[in-house]
Nucleic acid binder design. Structure first.
Lengths: 150, 150
DNA sequence: ATTATTTATTTGTTGCAACAAATATTGTTG
DNA sequence: CAACAATATTTGTTGCAACAAATAAATAAT
């Protein structure tokens, strides 16, 4: 659906303006679509991202500091995000023995299972995208985003 | 800057995956850049959008219902958003005389002035974008976003 | 006309996000 | 080695976001 119809606005001051609006709109759309997937499990996109990063560190644990570095949306508040994951028993915290300023975060079996469960709906979403846009167009879009940011 | 460097991740499972990550990253980037502009005035992007929509209804007032229809990020909570704008004396509320379920929202002189002040930094941002990407590329990008959403 | 339904907005509640400041540990420098 | 700076995480506070439920008024149905 063209952006003009999506937000019921027929004219833009320029193609730049239209692109910027469209980018915000599409970013929100993407976030909302993914939230639908996570919602049944009482997770937010950030929780999912963090959980995957923690899994990615297997076989070792990982510190909040290191999580922050690779996070798409750099959350200022990893402590409470991990609090929530810990409360849901998806991760566990231990004091790092070699550096007591650090916490060793690792994923639990329950956390691994949840990621397994989420795998299918996430792939279904990707398949849905694949029906709309070719892989070349996707690569092209990604390059244009890089260009845009300068 | 290529997305690979921006998030320090060198490989993606596919161009689709890379595009989706890039889209979220760029959406957040755009939000953050705009927030820098609004921050000095203690506004959020949504406040700015709503304020412009209210100005757009001049010479008449506008109801929350109508604002919601054209909003990019459809906020469920317009009441409190307008509360905040009213507290800052940027808009005023009146009961609609013809339909007392509705509120007539209109922008104040102070609100108009603020939009004037924000005009320049907003245009500066657009100029910055223009240096990175041509208008044709922008139109192309916007079309690809439409295609992606299906 | 009385009741029911829909529409428009507000309110209550709960949890999350943002920012600054606090705490505790480690590293550095004179 | 004592004092200071840097690092890693937590805590406090305040405000915003999400969702359901409440209120209030207009419209429709009997």
């Amino acid at each position: 659906m063209k952006i003009e119809n999506a937000i019921k606005q027929s004219s833009f001051t320029s193609n730049y303006h239209k692109m910027l609006i469209n980018l915000m709109y599409t970013g929100n759309w993407l976030r909302d679509e993914q939230m639908k997937i996570f919602k049944q499990h009482d997770l937010l996109p950030q929780h999912f991202n963090v959980l995957r990063i923690i899994r990615g560190s297997i076989p070792g644990p990982i510190a909040p500091k290191e999580i922050k570095e690779v996070l798409i949306d750099k959350a200022g508040d990893l402590t409470r995000l991990i609090d929530k994951l810990e409360k849901k028993e998806l991760v566990k915290r231990n004091l790092c023995p070699s550096n007591r300023r650090k916490m060793d975060i690792s994923i639990t079996d329950k956390g691994l299972q949840l990621l397994e469960v989420l795998n299918e709906p996430m792939e279904a979403f990707t398949r849905r995208i694949q029906q709309n846009i070719t892989e070349d167009q996707a690569a092209n879009l990604s390059d244009l985003l890089d260009t845009l940011r300068g």
